[in-house]
Simulated assay, not measured.
Amino acid sequence: MPEMRSGWEAALAEATSSSWTHRVRAGQDLARFAEVPEAAEALLGLLLDTEDTAVTRQTAEALTRVGTVAAVRLIALAIAEADDNQADWLQTGVHDAVVEPGHRQDIAAACRKLARTPEEAVRRGVADLSAWTSG
């Protein structure tokens, strides 16, 4: 178990790297740890990366592929906070993942669960995310 811990801790350090490629890798590596508070905080920052749209797109894609409620919640929060440009890249990343079989159903199920959350920002983001993935 220590190996896994050090793996996600290394990814956590990369999340704040000045290199966009390191931040992309961090988003991909941290996506499966979306339920861990430290990873979730870093992932939200990567989804809303202000320096490179590739980081936003690839992190959204990785979280969509994971498809858990925790992962989808982070995408929804990012959508609620995103400016128009970031929202476009979040949508592109989500689309890149849902074109593969199975991912659309995972996202739809997670969105149904999150639609009842008390967090207004999550509900707002889920509404957009559901619209993006319903087609």
Rank of each mutant, 00 (worst) to 15 (best):
residue 24 V to K: 08
residue 24 V to A: 11
residue 28 Q to C: 14
residue 29 D to M: 14
residue 30 L to Y: 11
residue 31 A to G: 08
residue 31 A to F: 07
residue 32 R to F: 13
residue 32 R to E: 15
residue 34 A to S: 10
residue 35 E to F: 01
residue 35 E to C: 01
residue 38 E to V: 13
residue 41 E to K: 12
residue 42 A to D: 05
residue 42 A to M: 07
residue 42 A to I: 06
residue 43 L to F: 08
residue 44 L to A: 08
residue 45 G to F: 09
residue 45 G to M: 09
residue 48 L to P: 09
residue 50 T to I: 02
residue 54 A to Q: 10
residue 55 V to H: 03
residue 55 V to Q: 04
residue 55 V to L: 04
residue 58 Q to A: 10
residue 60 A to N: 09
residue 61 E to W: 14
residue 65 R to V: 15
residue 67 G to K: 00
residue 67 G to C: 04
residue 69 V to W: 00
residue 70 A to I: 01
residue 71 A to C: 02
residue 72 V to W: 00
residue 73 R to P: 01
residue 75 I to K: 01
residue 76 A to N: 00
residue 77 L to Y: 03
residue 80 A to E: 05
residue 82 A to D: 04
residue 83 D to F: 10
residue 87 A to N: 08
residue 88 D to C: 06
residue 89 W to H: 15
residue 90 L to H: 11
residue 90 L to A: 12
residue 90 L to I: 15
residue 91 Q to D: 10
residue 92 T to L: 14
residue 94 V to H: 03
residue 95 H to K: 15
residue 95 H to Q: 15
residue 96 D to C: 13
residue 97 A to L: 06
residue 99 V to H: 09
residue 99 V to K: 11
residue 103 H to I: 08
residue 104 R to C: 05
residue 105 Q to R: 10
residue 105 Q to D: 12
residue 107 I to C: 12
residue 109 A to Q: 14
residue 110 A to K: 02
residue 111 C to N: 10
residue 113 K to P: 06
residue 114 L to S: 12
residue 116 R to Q: 11
residue 117 T to Q: 07
residue 117 T to F: 04
residue 118 P to T: 09
residue 120 E to C: 08
residue 121 A to C: 06
residue 121 A to S: 12
residue 122 V to D: 00
residue 123 R to D: 04
residue 129 L to R: 05
residue 131 A to P: 12
residue 131 A to I: 14
residue 132 W to K: 05
residue 132 W to D: 04
residue 133 T to N: 07
residue 134 S to V: 09
